[in-house]
């Protein structure tokens, strides 16, 4: 049977102002977010550089939500 789920969720690079907004919403500094490597295939695809924040639009059996990952080298 073919896969029952989308293997790769949509990755979106956040602008500086959006990043600040998200950090404020969670009340933590950026380095406390889950990480993604700069060399990660998906990070490369959207051209994310270390220090930026990536929004990941997930969709799984618990529902639709956005996850964030901080780009590190």
């Amino acid at each position: 049977m073919p896969p029952s789920y989308e293997p790769i969720p949509v990755h979106e690079l956040l602008s500086e102002s959006e990043t600040a907004k998200v950090a404020k919403k969670f009340g933590i500094s950026l380095d406390k977010f889950p990480k993604i490597n700069e060399g990660d295939p998906q990070a490369k695809k959207i051209g994310a550089k270390a220090g930026q924040l990536v929004a990941i639009h997930r969709e799984d059996p618990t529902g639709k939500y956005t996850y964030y990952r901080y780009v590190v080298r």
């Binding site: 789920y5 293997p7 790769i8 969720p9 990755h11 295939p41 998906q42 990070a43 799984d60 990952r69």
Partner: peptide, 17 residues
């Protein structure tokens, strides 16, 4: 391999599913 080719997010999806 999934992490290498598709990225961490795909790997996390794979682990969970």
């Amino acid at each position: 391999e999934v992490a290498r080719v598709y990225g961490v997010e795909a790997a996390r999806n794979l682990i969970a599913h």
